[in-house]
Design a protein around this nucleic acid. Structure first.
Lengths: 215, 215
DNA sequence: GTCAAAATGTACCGTTTAGTTAAATTGTCA
DNA sequence: TGACAATTTAACTAAACGGTACATTTTGAC
């Protein structure tokens, strides 16, 4: 019976979808943790239930795998945005709710934020090349356009701020909350990242965004 | 004379400081561009006027070089902050000036921002280990403490927002403006990053920060 | 001048790493 | 059931990469 340890694994069940999903999930974690250059294909393979060969079989090369990971991450964002319903709210409340949703979403998806930061280190090269992400048409801006139009109409919003600016402003704080947590915590302490601290920041961001657009 | 091409470079002038500074400047660019794992020691050496050997002679190894680069970057930040004088201004004006300074400073130091983002990818591991940076005691918070105290005293500032929160809020937008420019531009267009667009964002950040702290 | 220590150049080495080869097993469908 | 395509395993390779050995030159103290 001491042969078994050395014998080839000579029986398996084919399950392409499962294998692909497995690789993608592990690769997402590893790329998010170590970056594109820092991630090791062998490390990804080791954590998978399959072999390195399968990574190359399904994703071509390391870059192809990274792009698939990035595309899957953006697809999840799109799905999240779609779930948000703001139609029945007045503009101020809708904006507040959107800010809170954005804050929570980023906080709940740290590896998405890390992938975005990694992508920025690479000057968004892979994002640019991805046709799948181009087709995604993220909907945050559409929602803000509605909110801004209504707000300006009813006179509660300034008219000199664009939806894109507003999206930028909201994103900046919600992304930074994750992307720069490590350095900020070390230099200025961790109070902002306790549960109470996060609740405070959430309110602060709402206040700053509403403060910026209010007439 | 056809020997000269192959002969060893058999004469030079010693200049340790110059060599170190040369390596550090080039390494800053390369690390900021490619990240810690992505940067190549050979590439840094190639761009230098000296050799790879000298990198190891002065900085020990790749990590030591990276840490020196990081420390030099933070030292420049500290120097920048020290140059800012806000004493004679009223709290609102001082805060506005600080926001504008922070915005401009980040915009003028893109490789600093990139290094910070890279450091965050690595969970601030090198920042934590650096005694030089620990001693630096960045002064932005001190300035904000003064401003907040005065502002609350004279009744123009809310009293439930801390200097650290405020610093976080200001940093988030000023950092994001550089750190996530590539992905944002690709997804939502480049209008915000023209000269006019940047002036608009600068005003927007001022409005949002003042809007957040005003009574 | 001499000598030791600091600084520099050239050539090289051992590992790590992305990527491949070749063969075996499983699934499908005529 | 048998041929053929899709999937999976294990072992291998070439190149890139961080790091080093060793010789040589410069500098400054005496």
């Amino acid at each position: 019976m001491n042969e078994t340890a050395k014998t080839r694994k000579n029986s398996w069940r084919q399950d392409p979808d499962r294998v692909k999903a497995d690789i993608l999930a592990i690769a997402t974690e590893v790329f998010a943790t170590f970056g594109l250059a820092g991630a090791r294909v062998d490390e990804i393979a080791r954590r998978t239930q399959t072999s390195k060969r399968m990574i190359y079989y399904y994703f071509g090369d390391k870059n192809g795998l990274y792009m698939s990971v990035l595309e899957a991450a953006y697809a999840r964002v799109r799905a999240g945005e779609d779930a948000l319903k703001l139609d029945e709210l007045d503009p101020i409340s809708a904006l507040q709710r959107l800010v809170e949703f954005t804050f929570d979403f980023h906080r709940d998806n740290p590896s998405y934020v890390r992938l975005v930061q990694i992508e920025n280190i690479h000057d968004a090269d892979h994002l640019k090349r991805s046709e799948r992400i181009a087709k995604l048409n993220l909907s945050a801006i559409d929602k803000l356009e509605d909110i801004c139009r209504n707000g300006i109409e009813e006179g509660s919003f300034r008219s000199d701020i664009s939806p894109v600016q507003l999206h930028w402003l909201i994103s900046s704080s919600c992304v930074f909350n994750l992307s720069n947590r490590a350095t900020f915590r070390h230099l200025y302490g961790g109070d902002l990242f306790t549960e109470a601290g996060q609740a405070g920041l959430r309110k602060l961001i709402v206040a700053s965004v509403l403060g910026a657009i209010r007439c």
